[in-house]
């Protein structure tokens, strides 16, 4: 009996300005294999279907359990986490491409630092630095923890931005992840000192107003963040903040 195999088609690009090429690989099937483990296997023997020797595929990954957020790529056309994409659930040949909206580094590696920049722009942190010990912060009630926990699950994978029709060079939209983090840190009893600043930041060009509510983000998010609800809540708060600012100016 012939050995069971899986076929991959991977979009390769040696450098940001090199032409892209598709390469086809066939490897033995193993139970429970996922897209990252398949690429590890390719690295062990980087020979294409046609017998041509090539380089191992470059990609980002770390945790292999969908928690570090580094392995987002387009698999069969859709953005998702490669480490949790089980080969058995995918149609073959499995086509793997880099995310399309971030500057390409090499092969499947892209530069997603825009999310980090955006999180900095909205001060997505709890400020506790100072010249003396501030002591312990206020207590969070279990109810507050319950409400905020889903928002804290974001792994900064940028899937929500990749799939968003409004996230592009034309709009310079901030994307759903940053909006959700604004809600998370505004809900935090210490984090909320920056609440007004965060809301004003999100009313800047490329801010929350650019969302067209296509709801792709919430469909694509591997961690099931309640993104559209966050966009609604923060959207209302930004409007209220702008009206207040306007009346007080």
């Amino acid at each position: 009996m012939a050995e069971r195999t899986v076929v991959f088609e991977i979009k390769r690009q040696a450098s940001p300005d090199a032409p892209s090429v598709w390469e086809r690989f066939e490897l033995p099937w193993r139970p429970g294999m996922n897209v990252i483990s398949a690429m590890m296997e390719i690295a062990g023997n980087p020979v294409t279907c046609e017998g041509h020797c090539t380089t191992p595929v470059a990609y980002d990954s770390n945790c292999l359990e969908e928690i570090c957020g580094s392995c987002a790529m387009r698999i069969n056309g859709k953005a998702r986490m490669a480490c949790s994409s089980l080969v058995d659930n995918l149609e073959q040949p499995i086509r793997v491409e880099p995310l399309s909206k971030f500057p390409l580094v090499r092969d499947l590696q892209v530069d997603r630092s825009v999310l980090f920049e955006n999180l900095k722009k909205v001060k997505a942190w709890v400020p506790i630095d100072g010249t003396y010990d501030l002591g312990s912060g206020p207590r969070l009630t279990p109810q507050e923890q319950e409400a905020n926990y889903p928002l804290s699950n974001c792994i900064s994978c940028t899937c929500c931005m990749e799939v968003c029709p409004q996230f592009n060079v034309e709009t310079g939209f901030v994307g759903a992840a940053t909006i959700a983090q604004v809600k998370l840190f505004n809900n935090h009893p210490t984090g909320k000192v920056f609440k007004e600043e965060r809301l004003r930041a999100l009313s800047g060009d490329g801010g929350i107003q650019e969302c067209g509510y296509a709801q792709n983000c919430v469909q694509a998010c591997p961690k099931q963040l309640p993104l559209t609800s966050a966009i609604s809540d923060v959207g209302r708060e930004v409007v209220v903040q702008k009206v207040k600012d306007w009346l007080k100016s």
Binding site: S20, R24, L104, K121, G172, G207
Partner: peptide
């Protein structure tokens, strides 16, 4: 196997939020 599928082009990224 190397079939070029697109011409070399440098991809511009989406710019960060212009806060406030």
């Amino acid at each position: 196997t190397a079939q070029p599928t697109s011409a070399p082009q440098l991809q511009r990224g989406v710019e960060p939020l212009r806060a406030a």
